[in-house]
Amino acid sequence: MIAFYILAAVLIASAVFTVTQRSPVYSVVGLLVNFITLAIFYFSLNAEFLGVIQLVVYSGAILMLFVFVIALLSSGIGPFSEGPNRLPLILAPALLSVLVAFGFLIFGLGRGPLVPALSAAGNASVGAVGTAKAFGSVANFGTALFTTQLLPFEVTAFVLMVAVVGVVTIAGDASPAPTLGHHGRRRKRAKEREPIVKAGR
């Protein structure tokens, strides 16, 4: 119980930290802490497999991706340079709408029980974390993934392929060949013709 509140506090704090830092590197660190805390939450919610996935994929791969991109874009150490703020008046409406939305959501939450309460008895049927074939264990998860949820699983493969192709197309080739222009093309064609003559020698 107390653990929940402490972890919740860490979660929120790290989220705020991520969003408010000048330097993206600090934000990445904050995000890392956030993800790890989330993994702990997953473990506590009988989602062992997902917890591990969270650690491996999210904090291990995606955050590294962020770090590399930061490295690619930054010309030096320190915060990136930014232009003038073109929407100075956005702060108030943004915060207002966020608070309104959050408020109504909490209000809606308070209206009644969402699900049958998580009871200790329910816990028993679920099985403790780490137990083989318990709810959320690798075996359980894997069984679901390869039987009832097979189609989405296959589709994700497709999604990942699309992502790879997209990334290569969008950001590949740092310096593409410059366009030759009219005279350039003629010169290029002329150059290409030469070897045929030269080959006769």
Partner: peptide
């Protein structure tokens, strides 16, 4: 988008 979402949430919550 956020404002729209806020409206939706408000509607569905109430």
């Amino acid at each position: 988008i956020v404002i729209g979402a806020a409206v939706f949430i408000a509607y569905f919550a109430t």
